[in-house]
Design a protein around this nucleic acid. Structure first.
Lengths: 212, 212, 212, 212
DNA sequence: CATGAATGAGCTTTCATTCAT
DNA sequence: GATGAATGAAAGCTCATTCAT
């Protein structure tokens, strides 16, 4: 948790620091991110940085928390009543929320993704000491429910499918980002892209690619 | 490309250097790998290292090339005549080759996987400037053939599926390594494990998880 | 000398600041004492600290002065009329005063002792530019008087004996503190300890350890 | 232990580094000694320093070992056969050795003394994990022997006397250094000084300052 | 008079790379 | 061709002190 000092900062300055840090971590990853570059970018003194945060880990964890928090804003109503929808609809809503978020906050999404991509890194293990297991438990519950309802084949290997879904989550973002990289589509086109990408995923997960 | 001096080395010494470097990169990743540790481990002088290789990048690239080369030894006969088999059999053979290779050369497989896992890292982008496209072209060819034969649904988005297959490739290894971590099964059991894991993947890719 | 603002403070607040600072210097020594910890402990703003004191040196010097002042309270009646007693009685009274003081104000005694222990430290040299000489002059006077009275051998080297007495002063406290460390004797026992320790010193100084 | 690199250095350079480091530690103490100043003073690159030593602790320990080693050169024949001499002769020889050493290696002696002066500092506790207790045991043995021979009063408090002797050891050096500070006596005069100082100590310890 | 954010020099340590022998 | 010492920029972090409000 950042120090009080940080939260007392004028919003603008705080935002600049967060943005600079996000950009640094997104570009270089946790290990290679440089506090020196962050303070240079945010135009603050090195000492100031350490008045705001306890250490490198502290900023990173804070950013992660902010990201999680910000992501909540994008969660669609569908996901708030998971009992009312079938599994694939929920999944579609989840991915779409995620991609909406990523579209509007690309760098933040990038560093948010690192947690899943580099699950094995000590810093991420620390961040998700409980979180990750909770996530798995939630997924598992959803899957079991879906099986009971006959939406999903009962013969699947649940831990394996959870792993796959997590992996594909990361893959979604990467694919999406690569496919739009360098372009400046107008918004409508991007919206279509997002929807298309999501649908591809859902279809893939539901039906595979084999001929029926 | 390593300097001539490296290739003039006695086979044994060259092999030791490669093995030490592989181990270092596998354990710490590219950025955090330490030349110091490599030269200490391989019992060569620091100066000698730079008489064999131009720089850190140079060793890494060389190892990657050696790995690719070594992987070829594991390619099953099935894959050498791709025309004779259906797509999923080929895929199964490919995954199985990969896992066989990983089982017998775990460290090498680990660093080989990093290329795919951290596709976005500059070093890997550089390594696969052409390589990756070649790989994609081969995959594309396979997919098109399979569609023509009616093995795969014709309405898939080919670039997307390629991306997925690549991602799942990495996921396979991770899942496999995590599931056997810390155990010392005997070989037969491991063989079964490998096959099971592969079958799960193939089934998933072919049929998805939805009820038919 | 602290600034006027410091002396305008309510007694309670001033006392808290002093106590916190004493504790900090006693625990970490001058160089490693942290202004940060002092202001945190005393619950004052960093800026306030510098409105009370000019700098780190300033607090330290002030505390030293306060300590000297406080020590006077413990000086026994014996010491106030030095002419009426023999040298060793005076010495015994002095040590006993010192130990009494130390027993009731352990942290203050600790930092007071640092002045003698680290005589060579610039900060202490500065503090005792005059003070030390005054102390020496007093000691010298006492010694000369004692020699004249035949209580002390006339062939001693006076500057040397002064140095020794000072050193043994520090040693007394250290020995005493180490010997009671971790115990929580009741007061009576401690009193006995103090007296024993003092007597050992006096005996040593008077007779040495050689056989008569 | 310093790295091999350090011992491979030309004698002259190694000596310069050691001298610079000794001077730094003597002037500022362990905590406040600055590697930056050492490398500047010895005119080596900062990286070189860490090619020679593992860390700050490493240099310091090395210097301490060198000091102990060097001190051995000054040990008089008397001390090598402790059984043949009475206690005070041994003590005199010991002090004289020490002062001879200090006279010829003033800075080294200064930092050597720090170990005793700041016994409680973690670094010194680490250095003397066993050494110190061994030293005490040796002293104790000497004292008991001297009591048995009737050279020392049997009623002394042994742990207390050991503490005093250790303290006076440090005090000797300090007194000696202060008394010659800034003077450039010729050697003969200094020799006399040393002998005088030692004799004062022995006499003090043996007889105290009281009239017989 | 109180506040606490801002500052920047300083700290120890690591590392890939170069250079002289 | 082999050696290993030399290099210096960069890392994360601390701290007494100043400054603006």
């Amino acid at each position: 948790m950042p120090k009080e000092t940080f939260f007392n900062l004028p919003d603008e300055k705080r935002a600049l620091i967060e943005a600079t840090a996000v950009s640094e971590f997104a570009t270089h990853g946790y290990d290679n991110a440089s506090i020196n570059r962050i303070v240079a970018g945010a135009k603050i003194a090195k000492g100031s940085f350490y008045q705001y945060f306890h250490d490198k880990k502290d900023v990173y964890k804070h950013l992660m928390a902010r990201i999680a928090e910000k992501k909540l804003d994008y969660i669609s109503p569908v996901l708030q009543n998971p009992g009312d929808y079938d599994f694939f609809t929920l999944l579609q809503a989840a991915y779409r929320s995620g991609l909406d978020f990523a579209r509007e906050n690309p760098q933040i999404a990038l560093i948010g993704n690192q947690v899943f991509k580099h699950r094995d890194h000590p810093i991420h293990q620390e961040i998700f000491k409980e979180g990750q297991d909770a996530g798995k438990a939630f997924y598992e519950q959803l899957l079991r429910l879906a099986i009971a309802r006959g939406e999903i084949r009962p013969d699947i290997d649940i831990p394996f499918v959870i792993h796959i879904l997590n992996t594909l989550n990361v893959a979604t973002f990467e694919y999406y980002f690569e496919s739009i990289k360098g372009n400046d589509f107008n918004m409508t086109e991007i919206d279509d892209d997002v929807m298309d990408t999501v649908d591809l995923f859902i279809d893939f997960i539901k039906n595979g690619i084999g001929t029926p």
